[in-house]
């Protein structure tokens, strides 16, 4: 709780002081969201979006893998048969890996999440082309920048939460499987539901960025 309190209270008080300073010194108009959005480069938005997309996805996958991995290792000491099955819980290549999926579940489910992030980042970065600065500030380029940013944030956040969900469900599944092998298939279904949530983010991310043009000059 301490960290949360500091991380909320710190920026809030700084923002409050700056805001009051601007207001009381008669320059309150310099706090202008519209101008900030207009003047910041579309490249900034696009690149930040791509970074958030892959970064948050990998964070989610890594988190899921460590949560589930620790339990698989511990549970595997007395029930070694669970280790290959539960590998699935972390990976991301859903389609090409269906046969393996059935055998190696937990780790692969988590890993899949990172792969969603990679795919989306590749799609996003294909829209980024270098053009002269004078031709950069057009309506189409603004749209591309913003859609890549928010698309990336959508995909990244979805994948982060999906990875954590798969990780926790997978950890429980590994332990349940270790105790009673007949539970494996039943619990796997719950894990599949968790891992599908990442796919939702991927789809929305594709739709959001699909209408954006590649950066183009006049």
């Amino acid at each position: 709780m301490g960290y949360l309190a500091y991380s909320v209270a710190g920026p809030t008080s700084v923002a409050g002081i700056v805001g009051l300073y601007l207001l009381l010194t008669g320059s309150g108009e310099s706090f202008n969201v519209g101008r900030f959005l207009e003047e910041s480069s579309p490249y900034l938005w696009a690149m930040t979006g791509i970074g958030l997309c892959i970064g948050l996805s990998v964070l989610g996958a890594a988190w899921g893998i460590f949560v589930t991995g620790a339990s698989i290792l511990g549970g595997g000491v007395r029930a070694p048969r669970i280790r290959t099955k539960n590998l699935i819980r972390c990976a991301g290549k859903v389609y090409s890996m269906v046969p393996i999926l059935i055998k190696y579940n937990s780790i692969i489910f988590c890993e899949v999440v990172a792969i969603y992030g990679v795919i989306m980042s590749i799609v996003f970065s294909s829209k980024v082309v270098s053009i002269p600065e004078t031709e950069l500030y057009t309506a189409s380029n603004y749209y591309t920048g913003f859609s890549l940013f928010w698309g990336g944030l959508t995909v990244g956040t979805c994948n982060l939460l999906c990875g954590v969900a798969v990780g926790i469900a997978g950890s429980t599944a590994a332990i349940g499987d270790a105790a009673d092998p007949t539970l494996f298939v039943k619990i796997l279904i719950i894990e599949v539901f968790a891992s599908i949530m990442g796919l939702f983010g991927l789809i929305v991310g594709l739709l959001v960025s699909g209408k954006a043009q590649t950066f183009e000059g006049l």
């Binding site: 949560v67 620790a70 339990s71 511990g74 105790a179």
Partner: peptide
């Protein structure tokens, strides 16, 4: 607690649950 528990204790919890199966 599910987010951070396994950092330090996930492995041992797995082991103790394995013991319990015995």
């Amino acid at each position: 607690e599910a987010l951070f528990f396994n950092v330090n204790t996930g492995y041992l919890e797995g082991i103790v649950r394995g013991y319990k199966a015995g």
